[in-house]
């Protein structure tokens, strides 16, 4: 016991301290649950509002001003087409950059300059990428607001995410594997292609799916590119105009003050979008767990 303090005083103080600890523990737990609580409300709200609107006609139908007949096939196809651009572009540039930074670049000023630049790019608001796309792809390259322009813009947007995750994946490949390869007389590129990349592939795929799902949900850059939600024909190639799921949600939400049913259509489209993202993320987790290597 501390001599300078009265024993009973100390004990009541102790009780108070212990009680404070318990009370705050509960508060901390509630704070953690708060986010999940909002998430639950959001999902319940969206599902209750939109679920009954989802049927085959909705999924496969064309856009219409008549809420009862409106479908999202065009937006779905647009999203898929854009992904056809985003996936190869980000994979090639992202994995290539990661290999360069991790395995070829000499540790020094230039390498740290590129890495700092990448982390700064990751913090640039997505709408700024929209302006870049508008200026460079839509206007300067004169592509117009087509699939290719949208895809390239989104690809640049998610590129930093992919590079960083690919770098981590490559760094996680143990050095003794590449040593074994070098010891057999393999060249650097042979070692990278036959040992490092195969070992890093599951993590790279996981990272790229996560980057992809970010691109799928992104809206702001598309609004800047001037992607319409009008009655346009289904996109059939890289140079066709298109709309995408998030754009569809955006316009229906905005116009819900004019036509109340549009809010339900927006909710239904959100469900489709969230299911799509959920499936993608499940695949990512599956790949990570299934192919995780034991070294």
């Amino acid at each position: 016991m501390i001599k300078q303090m009265d024993a009973s005083q100390l004990r009541s103080r102790m009780n108070r301290r212990v009680r404070a600890n318990t009370v705050w523990k509960t508060i901390f737990l509630l704070a953690t649950l708060f986010g999940l609580f909002v998430l639950a409300i959001l999902i319940i709200r969206v599902v209750s509002q939109g679920a009954s609107w989802i049927d085959m006609d909705f999924l496969t139908g064309r856009l219409s001003t008549d809420a009862e007949r409106a479908g999202i096939m065009g937006a779905l196809l647009g999203t898929v087409w854009v992904m056809f651009v985003v996936i190869p572009v980000t994979l090639i540039i992202g994995v290539g950059t990661a290999i360069y930074l991790e395995l070829y670049a000499k540790k020094g000023k230039f390498q740290s300059f590129i890495e700092t630049n990448i982390s700064n790019l990751a913090g640039v608001p997505s709408i700024v990428y929209g302006l870049l796309g508008l200026t460079v792809f839509v206007r300067l390259a004169d592509l117009g607001n087509v699939v290719l322009a949208g895809g390239l813009t989104l690809a640049l947007l998610v590129l930093p995410i992919l590079i960083v995750s690919a770098q981590e994946a490559i760094r996680a490949v143990p050095a003794h594997l590449s040593e074994a390869s070098y010891g057999m007389g393999a060249t650097k590129w042979q070692t990278i292609r036959r040992v490092v990349l195969p070992a890093a592939l599951p993590s790279i795929l996981t990272g790229s799916i996560l980057a992809l799902s970010r691109a799928i949900g992104e809206t702001a850059p598309l609004t800047v590119l001037g992607i319409p939600a009008l009655l346009i024909p289904f996109p059939e190639g890289l140079f066709d105009t298109f709309t995408a799921l998030p754009m569809q949600i955006y316009y229906w939400t905005l116009d819900s003050s004019l036509v109340a049913e549009y809010a339900n259509l927006a909710a239904a489209t959100i469900i489709v979008l969230l299911v799509l993202l959920f499936v993608l993320n499940s695949v990512a987790i599956f790949i990570r767990n299934k192919f995780q290597q034991r070294y």
Partner: peptide
């Protein structure tokens, strides 16, 4: 991971 457009919808409606 929820797209911001979904939060926008949630805030507005």
């Amino acid at each position: 991971g929820i797209p911001t457009i979904v939060y926008g919808f949630f805030a507005f409606t």
